[in-house]
Structure formats: C-alpha cells, structure tokens
Design a protein around this nucleic acid. Structure first.
Lengths: 345, 345
DNA sequence: CTGTTAGCGCATTCAA
DNA sequence: TTGAATGCGCTAACAG
C-alpha cells in the first residue's frame, strides 16, 4: 500500500473547497475571513488526514523556515542544553551541528550545510582562528541571515554580534587567590592554537602573575602526547605550582597524573579548571574529582539566554543595530584543589 | 545592497545556456553528455558566483534530501558523537534533536518536527513507554522513511528495527561479582517509569539475586527528592549492600551521599553504574570518582556503528528485509567501588 | 547531444 | 467570500 502524501489539495478535494481557501484557513484559523463553518470543516479534515505542511514547499515559497542552527566545535553539553531550552521557548526550530572530532574542514563543512538550510540565524562557536575559515567566510557574508558568534570574535567578520565570557576579572581573581595560597608559579594549560578569548586569558594571566611576582609558564597540549607531557612537566616541579587549565578535561588529567606521581594536590600543585561544565543537568566533573577542583565557571546558561534573545531580536525586528559585543561575567568557584592546608585565608 | 540569490538561472544566463543543462551538469559533472568545454564553463561560473543549490527546491522535487535525524531524550554525548562520526562517513546530513529536559510532550514535538524535514531515516531513542507516544505513532506509521529505535522496542511499532545493548549477560556477571565480594543485598536504582530495557535488567537482576541468595530491592528516583531519598535509604543500611544505578549520574550522587554519611564504599556499600559514558572523547566520570566506580559499560560506539549501517542499508537498498533486533554486548568494568578490601578474588 | 517544459506543495495575488 | 493563476528553484522527462 503506497499512500501518497496529504497536501492542501487533498484537503481541498475532500472538503469540496479550493486550495487557496484551505491554505488561508490553515495559516490563520482565527481570521473571520471565512465563515466559521468552513473553517471548522477544513481544520477537521486536515486533522483527520493527519495533514502536516510541507517544510520544503514553505521554505521555497517564503525563503525562511523559522530555523536556527547551532554550530559547536565539540560536544558541549551544558551550552547545547541551554540553547535548546531557550530556542524551544521562542518556537523556533533548532538544528544542532556538532563537529566533535577535529577533522580538518569539518567545521567549515558543517557551516556550509547549515547555510544550505537557509536558517534565520546561526549561532556559531568558532574553534580556531580566522585563517581556517577562508572559504566559508565569503559564503557567510553573502548570506542574508543573522549570525551570533560565541566566545570569539573573528577579524574577518567584524560586524557580527559576539557573546562571550568576561575573562579578565575572573582570571585576575584566580591569580589573586593563587597568590594568597602561596603558590610560586602559574602554568597555563591549553591547546597549541589559541583563539581570541584564550589570548585574553593568557595575557591577563601573564600580566597579573607578574604583578604578584609569581612565575609564569605555558604548556601547549598535543592531544596525543597529553599524559606524557603532564608526567614530564609535573616530575620537574620545584616549587608550589598552580595549573590553570583550559577546559575540565585537562584539569582532570593533570590531577590523575599528579596522583600517579604521588604529588600532593593542593599542597604541591594547585589546579584550576576553566569550564566547570554541568553534565546531565546535575553534575560537575570538577566536583566529582578528589580533591574537588577549583574552577572559573563559564556562564553557559547566561550566554545561551543572551545569545538566543539577541538573535531572535535581530531576526524579528529587522532594525539594523550595530554589532554588539556582550560580555557575561564568570564566577570563580574555589574548591579544595587550590586550598592549601595550613594557609590562613 | 540587496543581493539576490544565485540560482541555476543566474548561472544559465551568465553562461549562455539553459537551466536544464546547468542542472544536469552540476548534478553530474563527470557525465559525458555535455562537451567538456560546456561542463567546465558551467562549473566555473557556478564557482565564481558561489552557487549553492537550494535544499528546499531539491527536497520539494525529489521528496528526499539525504538527511538523517537523531532524536535522543537527553544529552548523551558519547552516543551523539559516535553517530555523528558514522553519519559523516556515509555523506548524509545529520540533524540532532535533543530534548534534555523531561518536558511533557517535548519528545513528541521533536519527532513531529523531525518528520517534517522528510528525512530518509530517523534514529530514535524513546525515553519512556508506548503510551506517551499515542499521537506521534500514527504519523510515524504513515510516513514512508525508515526508523531505527535505540535501546527500547515499542509495542506499537513492532516492525521497526531495534539496536540495543544485550543486558542479560552483563547483569548476571555483575550479580556474580557482587556475590563474590560478599554483599548481601542488591538495590536497583532508576527512575520511576521504566522502559523495556530497564525491565529486562530489573527482571534479570531480581532473578539472579535470588539464585545467589541475595536480597533484592529497588529505589525509584524522584528527581526532586533525589539526595533526600538516598540519605534516607543509606542511613538505614544494615548489611553490605550493592547499588546498581541506571546511569552514571545516580551512581555519582549515591557516592556523594555515602561520603557525607561516612559510609565506606566499597566496604559497606558497593556501587555499580550502568552507563560509563565517555565524555569529551576522553574521560569517564566513573573513573574520575573516588573510589572509581564499577560499571556496566553501554557500548555506544558499537551501537552507533550498527545503527547507522543498518539505517543506511535500509535507505539505499529498498529491499524489504524483516525488522531486525540487534543486540550489542555490554562489558562489565570492575573498579574499586565494588572491590571490598580483604576479599580474596 | 541539447534545450524546453511540467510540476513538486505552498502562499499570494487578483479576478470573479 | 471564494477560486484560479502564478512562481519559488530545481529536476526529470521529453522534444528537438
């Protein structure tokens, strides 16, 4: 049994009316343009037939389909959940496009695909610097929809909105805290390539460390040699050192290695994670670890809220407001991994 | 400057050819139907103009768009990552639709939306029992595409493929292990509503416990009262008890509460998680916890692989193979949370 | 071998 | 108040 699709035509026939009428009524069932009886009839038939409008036809016609695409470079559960919730509230469709593995060009491909759906807006968290996005940038510029960038501004897209954490204050506080605990050295742990936000953090960190007269260093993580790198670095420590890690994963792994090497955390090394993701809506991995890990908590929920509101505003009001750069405050959550025993607070 | 869209018409004009030719060539640039010169010309112009075909038009015409939708009831990073990777390999578009919060009807809504995109296939992990899906079931049945269910078979959709973990063996092994460690009681921890797979686990558990002459009980978790429930239950323990938790989150929280109550894990209580998710492609929360948590590891990667292959097969070959029910082996990963001190193995 | 044409399902406009 | 005609961008069948 091959059943053909139910279209407005089907409904029109069954109701003894024309397509136009059906379309009208279905689009605006409350409008008194048609007699109540007709409207009721149409709606009833549509219901019986399990009618669903064809997105492609609508898209073709209207050139838009109330769709927002979220492009994130890795699986970032808290952000995705938050955005999902906010978008649901405003009755837009959300299409998530994750590119978890750092496959060359995957992100560009995802963006291309996103554009092909002619969404009303795109929320994009670039994972790396401008230079990687040569091909896609022109497509984005040629496109008519709205883009909000997360975390990093791109030089080649200067007139895009950006929503990101305010990184300076929290980093300063972290250093202050580290100093108060008597650590003599700070090490910033991140991937080799750093993007704008990381750079801000890095600079602030270096600068503030100098103010407090604390040594500063940086580890660039090669994802294949990770554990080895940590082992090497940790085994050479000569003074109380605090590690500030880009993302929870690094922090956890350093802690693991420290445990293997029988290095005491927090006394010999301190660990701070930048992230503090909420997983499964209930648990933070920094709180599961022992000792619990101090963290600069990225305000994903607030970022999601701000981003979606901004984007929707852009979409519905067509007013040309200049690009915004919104910063959302981060919080420093002090836990055991940086609370040395015997240091008076 | 309002730039209009680039369509095949634009290209045709600029190349001095007809739409039909352009369409043909672009669809199949290698086909010798047109002289190499013409083909080259068309492709070049399309390139210059940054032409991108309109998905809606294609969808309308062909009634399909090489799209697979993944509907998961909560954010399940490992599964999503794996599926994403596999789908990318076969050159289909993946659209992820997560419904993390248990909002009434959210899942149905997500499925409806999914169907509206007329995907070639849907991968769906139902979060609850048939009765909740009354409305959507008929739409799915009326639909012409392929569905693969994850984890749970639905009675109202008996002819759908199902891919799921083989739950019996691993549960038996877990009980055996628990018995060998001298625990006298087993408690199954899960949400109040249980779905097919949970039921299998529950039954196997109860039965096997009886075989080993171990007490059996069950806690139904009300997500608001979680901690309280655990506190109450744990404070009443009179004999070495092993908790088998549906999902890592429950396991972590029980461990947390046990720590507060100064209950020793593994000696007084044992904990086993069913899940052992891989997070961020590198870390399992069960390994971060102290003691590390024993787990029945759900084979998400294998499930993803099997599912995508099955679905693609169904889509490309149109052969009507009867619905399959594929089971993927689970692994029992024994860690400290169930390894009592002083018990000889 | 190439260009023309009919429609996919819908919304909009205009005529009746 | 209603219905018929048009076109969105593309493809496939068909005509030249």
């Amino acid at each position: 049994m091959k059943r053909s699709r139910v279209t407005i035509k089907t409904i029109a026939e069954k109701a003894g009316l024309s397509c136009g009428s059906v379309s009208q009524v279905l689009a605006n069932p409350q409008h008194p343009r048609f007699p109540p009886e007709t409207r009721k009839k149409i709606i009833q038939v549509a219901d019986e037939l399990n009618y669903r409008p064809n997105r492609f036809a609508i898209g073709l016609r209207r050139q838009k389909v109330n769709l927002i695409v979220l492009v994130v470079p890795w699986n970032c559960p808290e952000l995705v959940d938050s955005i999902e919730t906010k978008v649901r509230e405003v009755d837009f469709q959300l299409m998530i496009s994750q590119t978890p593995l750092p496959i060359k060009g995957a992100e560009e491909k995802a963006l291309m695909a996103a554009l092909d759906w002619q969404p009303d807006g795109i929320i994009w968290m670039p994972s790396t610097a401008d230079s990687e996005y040569k091909n896609i940038i022109q497509h984005i510029k040629a496109w008519h929809g709205k883009v909000v960038l997360l975390h990093h501004k791109l030089k080649s897209l200067p007139d895009m909105d950006v929503v990101r954490p305010e990184a300076i204050t929290s980093v300063r506080r972290a250093v202050e805290h580290i100093a108060s605990q008597g650590y003599r050295k700070i090490v910033y742990v991140s991937l080799p390539q750093i993007v704008q936000l990381d750079r801000i953090r890095l600079n602030t960190l270096e600068q503030t460390a100098k103010q407090y007269n604390i040594d500063f260093d940086r580890i660039k993580i090669d994802s294949n040699e990770e554990t080895k790198q940590y082992q090497k670095y940790l085994s050479q420590i000569t003074q109380p050192t605090a590690f500030i890690c880009q993302g929870d994963w690094h922090a956890i792994e350093i802690l693991e290695v420290a445990e293997q090497l029988k290095l005491n955390c927090p006394d010999e090394i301190g660990i701070i994670s930048i992230g503090d993701f909420l997983l499964g809506n209930r648990i933070r991995i920094c709180e599961v670890a022992r000792p619990r890990i101090t963290a600069i908590r990225e305000p994903f929920n607030a970022i999601a809220e701000t981003t979606v509101r901004l984007l929707i505003d852009r979409i519905v009001e067509q007013i040309e407001v200049p690009a915004q750069n919104i910063e959302v405050a981060e919080e420093l959550i002090i836990r055991q991994s940086t609370l040395k025993t015997g240091v008076s607070r």
